[in-house]
Every structure is written in C-alpha cells, then in structure tokens.
Design a protein around this nucleic acid. Structure first.
Lengths: 119, 119
DNA sequence: CTGATCTACAACCATTTGGTTGTAGAATAG
DNA sequence: CTATTCTACAACCAAATGGTTGTAGATCAG
C-alpha cells in the first residue's frame, strides 16, 4: 500500500535488491508465473533459507509480494516496484536531456558585446 | 571502450553502484557539470578517500569516466552506462507486457471442444 | 627549490551481505 | 493421529561494503 514513499532508503533498497543475479531471476520468474518460496528454492543451487532471504530482500524493496495460500507462500511480481525504478531512471535521463539543452544553448549563444572568447 | 559486455557481473556493478545516495548524487552532479575528485569531495561530509572510492565504484560500473587534466582528475557522467541500466529496466517491463498479453489470451480463449474448465 | 594541492593506495575497522545449519510451528497427506 | 511439507527465524561464518587515517607520488604556485 506504500503510496509513493521513495526516500533515499527506499531507492537504496530497490537498486540493492536488483544488484544480485539470483534476485533478478526471481523477479523474472514471478512476473511470468506464480511460485511458492520452495518452488523458487528448487530452481537454484542454494539452500531454501538462502532463497527465502532473497525473497525477503525483494519484498522489502517492494519488487515482489507474498500471499499465504494454505501452507505455501505465493510470491508474485509487483509491477509498481519496477515502475518506480524505471521512473527513477527516467529522471536521470531527464538530467541528461537538460544538459544537452544547456550545451545547445551555449553553442547558439551570440556575443552581444564585443568581448570575445579567447582562442 | 567496453562495447556491450553486460554480463551478470556488469549488471551487478551497475545496480550496486546506484544503491547508494552519495553515488547517485555524484552521478547527477557530474552529468550537469565537470568536477574534479576533490571538487566532489568538498560537497560531502566524508573524507576525500571515501569520495574517491565512490567515484571508483561508479567508474567500474561505467557510470562515470575520469580524465586527467593537469594534477586534477576530471569526472564526467557516462551516458552509455545509464542507458544500459535503462535498457535493462525496459526488458523487465517487456516481461510484464508479455505476461499481460498471455493473460489476455487466456481470457479471450474460446472452448472449441466440449471439455469445459471445471468450476 | 619549496611548499601546497590533488590524487592514489594501503591498512584498518564496523557493519552488511550472502551463504550455511538447525530448530520450531503451521498446514496437508495418509 | 502421525508423518511430511512448507515456512520462519535464529545463530553462525566469510567476504564485501563504506568509512577512517596515513603515506607517497605528481603537478602547480611562488
């Protein structure tokens, strides 16, 4: 339900969560289909507890969500989380756009006074 | 010069590098203007060496590049690096699109034989 | 030349991370 | 009821991370 609390700590958690190949693979998998935690654990050459921790990291970063179903915990992808990362990246691209615009302005600048740029 | 070696380790480095607020701020700054390492260091409440390490992390992730100028080292933003991150995020969005399409297919599915889905 | 500045890097330290094993509770199967 | 499965969590460990101080080499200013 987290509306849009993208403070530094939240952004840290998002990027940190994506900085591991196992976790990125989990994100891909649970986006395309449903997996229980043990179903995911069966896919990787590591212990159940390790996968459980990875899922917990992704959950705290709001990249996936869990829902109890019987004795299983179903993991699903959380599109909002990914969209937030994307939005962040868009902001950086926007900064680049601003920079490009500023450079274009400088190049288009016409010297109104007689002071010339040396060289 | 790294053409497009986006292996797991490279992706790890990209996301890991962005998972720190100081480093994200450095990326913003050096995108908009030029900074020497010590120029950057003056901006943060930490030692020169700490900032130097942050820049090194960003450089290994190809998010910034350094260029020696006199006794200074000028840090600049590397647009390619950011574009790579963005491209990665686009891939995840594409996976979501596929999922949405798949779900739409299932909903649109018409039973051609008489075998009905139970319930 | 001398001193100041900028950088690089090593050594160290506390905390976090990514993994393990083990224990225990809750839900299902037989 | 009993055994199995699925999950949660604690305790532990090695390695990485983010910070520090200190030393030393280059370059610039006077």
């Amino acid at each position: 339900m987290v509306v849009d609390q993208l403070d530094d700590a939240g952004i840290d958690r998002l990027f940190q969560a994506l900085a591991d190949p196992t976790r990125r693979d989990i994100v891909r998998r649970v986006t395309l289909g449903e997996y229980s935690v043990s179903g995911l654990a069966a896919l990787y050459a590591m212990s159940f507890a390790a996968v459980q921790k990875h899922v917990a990291v992704l959950e705290r970063a709001s990249l996936v969500s869990k829902e109890k179903r019987g004795r299983e915990q179903i993991v699903r992808g959380n599109h909002e989380g990914l969209q937030n990362v994307r939005r962040l990246l868009d902001e950086y691209e926007e900064i680049w756009r601003q920079r490009a615009a500023r450079i274009a302005d400088i190049l288009a600048e016409e010297p109104k006074n007689n002071r010339r740029v040396p060289q």
